[in-house]
Amino acid sequence: MTTGAGDHSIVTRGLTKRFRGGQVAVDDLHLSVPRGSVFGFLGPNGSGKTTTIRMLLGLVTPTGGAWELLGAPMPGGIPAALPRVGALVEGPAFYPYLSGEANLRRYDAADPAADPRTASRRIALALERVGLSAAARKRYRAYSLGMRQRLAIAAALLGPRELLVLDEPTNGLDPQGTREVRALVKEIAADGTTVFVSSHLLAEVEQMCTHLGVMRTGRLVAQGSLAELRELNAGETAVVRVETPDTAEAASVLAGLGLAGVRTGDGEAGAELGAVAPERITAALVAAGVAVRGLAVRRPSLEDVFVGLTGEGFDVDG
């Protein structure tokens, strides 16, 4: 959009953070976040996601490597790039004795690129966007957990943003709130804003993201579009499973359709799906008079990919 870094909002080259004592929080990170994407930054707690985000935003200085934000080489480009970046880092933090509106005004004042003349309008708009207009004049102290999270998102939306960095945006939200955040992210992305969202929950990321990066103990183990990542275990094919009392007949139908790996079990039969369309299997089973109680196609999921990559599941709070 602006400078020559072309089509990436975030690019890191060998970004490394080694803390005193030798502990490596982030190791040789090569991240590429395409413009306009919703990039899910996935990894268990403690895998270096937050340190990475802090480095990207110039809060923590890397011990090695380089990075660019919105085409500007960092950290020199902080004054140019950060006003176009909205950020939510490690949960909300506000002044408890100020109202929500006054809190946003405070952060807006910190941005030298923000125009004070439009501040009131932008603040009202951001509050409206997250549904806090009614609570704008309430003290932050009196906000519920969810309201605080929403106010933090509002702070990230104070200006025209080209990149939104959201660190665990649904932390502490109830299911309804989680859904709303997801909807908001999609809406923002629809405007062309790049969204970089970190999470330790695969389910969450999978539902709103177009691209993924996966962290494991400080290393980026995979990144790419969802489709690309799925292909990582292209070797594993989809499996069809038929629930039926007539397991033998079902198995022979499946074999008759040319499916490989046909097997039978207790009250079910299964096979590798291959190139056969599931509806053909259904039709064939019915035509053969097999009593079908249920039919499921299990495709290789991202979960499998990630478990393979990271050695652990993602819905488990680490």
Binding site: F19, R20, G21, Q23, G46, T51, T61, P62
Partner: peptide, 14 residues
């Protein structure tokens, strides 16, 4: 991030 991770200082850009 864990506390001890954050305690560190930068030994980068010496």
């Amino acid at each position: 991030m864990s506390e001890q991770q954050q305690r560190g200082t930068r030994e980068p850009a010496r």
